[in-house]
């Protein structure tokens, strides 16, 4: 599994993403600066990490969504490559149009930072095969703008097509339909607010996130 992590000015989960990918794949992820024009050939999975790219100026993810590397990211998506956007990475993926909808200010207006229970709604994706549908897992959240919004038609399509792999149990931010994460139509692009890379069995917050990386490894090994 050949992986890459995009680094923006203000990213702060890029090293966590790097550690999680390294731990599961046994291969060193490529760290790609956002001003680069290319993602290395043969990359299977690109992580768009959390943080506060460009200081969240204007809107979360707005500037990063227009960074030079984004054309290469879109080309990777067009090739059917996997992309995992976490937190600010999810916000960036919606800003680029790779995922529908938008992330708004939390309904409470408060930053939320805690362990969060999620329910796996669809274990039949390349990101979730290591879990069972209906399984509850505990993953940390830490965000101010995680309130997922999309029009009713989009929400209905996401639900009908199994494109909501994770929902919150106890909605922390006001997200429509308790959405914690969504996938693209081809299932290869996942954006989510919770941080699976912060739950990989170290000291940091449980190990329920490692299943996501194991699922990817499995999906990429089967396809290889």
């Amino acid at each position: 599994m050949k992986s890459a992590v995009i680094v923006f000015p203000g990213s702060n989960c890029d090293r966590d993403a790097q550690m999680a990918l390294r731990k599961v794949s046994g291969q060193e992820p490529e760290m790609v600066w956002h001003k680069d024009a290319n993602i290395p050939n043969g990359t299977d999975i690109v992580m768009v990490p959390g943080g506060f790219s460009y200081g969240d100026h204007l809107r979360c993810g707005a500037m990063a969504g227009n960074s030079p590397i984004i054309d290469a990211l879109k080309a990777h998506a067009d090739r059917g490559g996997y992309i995992l956007g976490v937190c600010n990475g999810f916000q960036i993926l919606t800003e680029t149009g790779l995922l529908p909808g938008a992330l708004m200010r939390n309904a409470s207006l408060h930053f939320v930072c805690k362990q969060q229970t999620l329910r796996v709604e669809n274990a039949n994706t390349g990101f979730t095969s290591a879990y069972k549908s209906g399984q509850e897992i505990s993953i940390p959240v830490a965000h101010h703008d995680g309130n997922y919004f999309a029009d009713e038609k989009t929400l209905d399509t996401l639900e009908a097509d199994g494109r909501i792999p994770f929902k919150y149990v106890g909605n922390p931010n006001g997200s429509a339909k308790d959405i914690a994460g969504i996938t693209s139509a081809n299932g290869r692009v996942l954006g989510m607010m919770p941080h699976p890379e912060r739950a990989i069995g170290g000291h940091e917050g449980g190990s329920d996130g490692i299943g996501m990386f194991e699922s990817l490894l499995q999906a990429l090994t089967v396809n290889a």
Binding site: L58, A62, N66, T94, E95, P100, G101, A102, M104, F149
Partner: peptide
Amino acid sequence: EKLLANTVI
């Protein structure tokens, strides 16, 4: 359309 507003919201 491209940057200043997010026309989804």
